[in-house]
Nucleic acid binder design. Structure first.
Lengths: 354, 354
DNA sequence: CTGAAAGCGCTTACAG
DNA sequence: CTGAAAGCGCTTACAG
């Protein structure tokens, strides 16, 4: 079936192409009857305006692009669906680009897509940026030079000292602090943290959560002990079940005997670590308590159900859409950093002491 | 930073736009030095060709579109990454569209995107089509009228009697049959199936897996018993952990006492069902054996690790890329239905009887 | 190897 | 309310 053009449809309808264009774009200055006739013909002949030509004319488009980095689990799917809905309601199409491997997606690719795309706005969605901080920072700075509104959702913009873009995320710091306070309230004082990254870092989720945990300890007057921080065994997989498992296995032989509770940097991490503990003959929560972070469905289904911080998915998506649309309407708008507090969900993975 | 056009760059370099175009597109008929000079200038000034203009001229594009339906777990992420890599190697860009809610994504949206996009080819990726079979079939037929090569990956095309599109998938039927044979070989004869859909169906994964299970029983001379088929409790969530859990809870009160093994329609289903069994005081595999399907990482980490069929992800992606690229090269090419055999992975969730 | 020119299919002032 | 015309930024015969 050959593609039909506006010209052919115009001839069929006996009008000028400009009239067809107006009819297809629901402009007010068309006779309702003409409009109906043209749209009926379009339907009948399967006419669809050529998007490329349209975009070429219009310049910036009614399209918002969402970039997703790496894996794409329940959390991001839920946020993406909510974003798509918001954008549709606001009259925008949503297009998605997946950056399979943030490490190898050289800045150029992303930049090229954003520049070529002529998008109305861009969302970067993805929990965790590249491990190469300098590359991330550089990309972020180059992106800032492009004249398109962008926001970062569930991920920081790594541009360095002063943020160049708005970002919306769960409050990682407060969440980890809440978890720590919860454990303390149940009598725990020797509390470990699973899944710390390698280098000093202040922007990735793991670093914020680690800092929140330290703040929680401080709140309770507990001295932070480096020996209770369990480093990630696997590069670039910080938040995975596999990393939780491997990290715990690597750490267990040298683990201080008196640890009574552990905070996983994510639910998956906690689940993987639990498995390693089980294999080592230590039962959760009898021998050791463990909590996660994110509040995935799976946290409710593992045995025992995990105590965790639930990410406020709806609020995150809402804020993201709001900030982006507002910035699109007023590009000079101030940059916002939005941190949304997660909710503590009590499972059965923590034992009350004494 | 204003967008630079080919015209401006041409003026800067002191050449004609056609020369810039040739240089940017790596055509052979340009003086290597001119080419180098132009590309350097492009880099310096951040010139990126306008994709819309390019597409408008070229007509069909060097872009392949991947449509993803619904959730997007480990399996699809892995396949998508492999597809992206194959397409890139073949010189194509990959663009992704997410159909958040296949139920509500009226055929029109998908059709519009495909028609507008002028893609070189289209992949439909997603394990499970819409529940509304008539709508699916109709969409499939309408898509067949569009003059773009398409293949279905890990999902059937639901066009009905005669397939209109090529499709590549794990061999659901053989996999379930293998699982059944495995259980039989360990002494099980009263084997149930968790996650059957509501209506008669022959195309969805659950239906194929159910049929494979029945074939496996038949192979072993075991009479199929309807009472051992556990229906899905939740609409549109067949393969989720939640559905495994809820379905098992609903079924348990009326469960025949003599069941010794269960086949989950997916790993997640098996994991959810295990949890319900645990809550009811039945331990896996001591009291009852259970197997899954898909071979997700999580299957190795639950306790006990799940026996399952591992989806041959690499082969699926490879075949999908091969079939699509071949069809793009030769649109008259015959339609292929590719079923790839999965591998049985033995965990610890099955007990040997007697 | 390079340039001038036509044209891809739209949208949008402009004139009626 | 409608039409004729210009032009968005490219690519590609065509001519040199």
């Amino acid at each position: 079936m050959a593609e039909m053009t506006i010209k052919e449809l115009a001839r069929i309808c006996g009008v000028a192409v400009s009239t067809v264009s107006r009819a297809m774009n629901d402009r007010s200055d068309v006779n309702p009857e003409t409009r109906a006739r043209i749209r009926a013909a379009a339907e009948q002949y399967g006419y669809v305006p050529n998007g490329s030509a349209r975009r070429l004319k219009i310049g910036s488009t009614k399209t918002i692009s969402v970039f997703i980095q790496g894996e794409f689990g329940q959390l991001l799917v839920e946020i993406l669906q909510l974003l798509e809905r918001s954008f549709t309601e606001a009259g925008f199409d949503t297009t998605i680009s997946h950056i399979a491997d943030p490490e190898h997606a050289n800045a150029g690719t992303v930049e090229r897509i954003v520049r070529e795309g002529k998008f109305g706005g861009v969302v970067f969605l993805g929990r965790y940026g590249s491990a190469d901080r300098e590359a991330s920072a550089q990309l972020s700075r180059r992106l800032a030079e492009i004249d398109v509104p962008m926001v970062f959702c569930t991920t920081a913009d790594y541009s360095g000292a002063a943020a160049l873009h708005s970002s919306i995320s769960v409050d990682d710091h407060a969440g980890a602090r809440d978890l720590t306070a919860h454990l303390v309230s149940l009598g725990h004082r020797r509390i470990g943290f699973i899944g710390a990254g390698a280098e000093p870092d202040r922007e990735h989720a793991w670093a914020l959560r680690l800092a929140g945990y330290q703040a929680g300890l401080h709140d309770a007057g507990i001295v932070f002990d480096d020996a209770l921080v369990i480093p990630s065994a696997l590069e670039e997989q910080t938040y995975t079940m596999r990393n939780g498992y491997e990290s715990m296995r690597a750490w267990l032989p040298s683990a201080p005997e008196d640890v009574t509770a552990l905070i996983g940097v994510s639910d998956w991490t906690a689940i993987g670590a639990s498995r390693a503990l089980n294999e080592a003959g230590r039962s959760v929560p009898r021998d050791i308590s463990i909590v996660g972070f994110d509040g995935l469905d799976v946290a409710n289904y593992v045995v025992p159900p995990l105590t965790t911080i639930v990410q406020p998915v709806a609020e995150i998506a809402q804020s993201t859409a709001r900030v982006l649309l507002a910035t699109m309407a007023d590009p000079g708008r101030a940059i916002e950093q939005v941190w949304i507090r997660g909710r503590l969900l009590t499972g059965e993975s923590v034992r009350r002491l004494s």
